[in-house]
């Protein structure tokens, strides 16, 4: 068994107006190093919750199960420790930070992660060089670096900014939570290129999506169907095409 990412029997709930609501009901998922996996599934099946739980958001209470990442107990780590260990979550709805300059934010994040990983921090010049190369590759304007984080960004700009952060932070596990939703074909291509550029034997990605289109560019190793808080079906890249045609109905029947 691989010890890269191993999720077993994961249950998690959220407090919904005073009553606990169980959202993850026994997720089992193994992602070996170097692979891209996709998760598809109807709305409300727990896909975003899984991504938040992996990134360490505190609103969710893990009631049972385990997640190991590169041999470490991921659930015992703080969000920033997970980032340092290589976990990156591209948010479905990136957060705006008024008053926080995007370039300063990126440099703070990059250096925090480098420091935690035992790498030398980037000085202003080294950072600018790196970030300029990254923005160029992502067809982003440098003007976006001067603005406040995600403030006044269009939907597409916000997603591109997520990909820029991912590129700069060099994660070993990227979780993309519907990063493709609402993007046009060109922007979609940029997101896919961002992930593909990181591909290596030590990099894996978990891509949550509703659409086949992004997966055409990413060519995933495995596709999983999530329903009612569990992975109910897994297959190869062809599964995504099947879902595109048939929808989830047959898998939901299977899960019931």
């Amino acid at each position: 068994m691989s010890d890269f990412l191993n999720i077993s029997g994961l249950h998690a709930r959220i407090d919904a107006d005073g009553a606990p609501k169980e959202i993850l009901r026994g997720v089992d998922l193994v992602i070996p190093p170097g692979e891209v996996h996709a998760i598809m599934g109807p709305n409300g099946s727990g896909k975003s919750t899984l991504s938040y739980v992996l990134a360490g958001r505190e609103d969710y209470e893990v009631t049972s199960g385990a997640v190991s990442f590169k041999g470490q107990d991921l659930l015992a780590m703080e969000p920033e420790e997970r980032a340092a260990a290589g976990v990156f979550l591209a948010f479905q709805a990136p957060i705006e930070l008024p008053g926080v300059n995007n370039a300063n934010f990126l440099r703070t994040a990059v250096n925090a992660v480098r420091r935690a990983r035992g790498d030398a921090e980037l000085d202003a010049v080294g950072f600018l060089k790196t970030v300029r190369a990254a923005t160029k590759k992502l067809s982003m304007s440098d003007e976006m670096l001067k603005r406040n984080v995600n403030v006044g960004f269009s939907g597409g700009e916000k997603k591109r900014n997520e990909v820029l952060q991912m590129t700069m932070l060099q994660p070993s596990l990227a979780i993309l939570d519907e990063t493709d939703s609402g993007l046009d074909v060109d922007a979609l291509r940029i997101v896919a290129d961002g992930v593909n550029a990181l591909r290596s034997p030590t990099f894996s990605a978990l891509v949550i999506t509703h659409h086949q289109r992004l997966l055409d560019y990413l060519n995933p190793d495995r596709v999983h169907v999530m329903a009612r808080g569990r992975i109910v079906h897994s297959g190869g890249a062809e599964l995504a095409k099947e879902i595109d045609v048939q929808g989830y109905a047959s898998f939901l029947a299977e899960a019931a």
């Binding site: 920033e80 990156f88 979550l89 990136p94 930070l97 934010f105 703070t108 925090a112």
Partner: peptide, 17 residues
């Protein structure tokens, strides 16, 4: 959480905000 998920320690994230 957004800042922390980018590797920024909590105390530093608070100060930034």
């Amino acid at each position: 959480f957004y800042l922390r998920s980018r590797g920024v320690p909590e105390a530093q994230a608070r100060r930034i905000l």
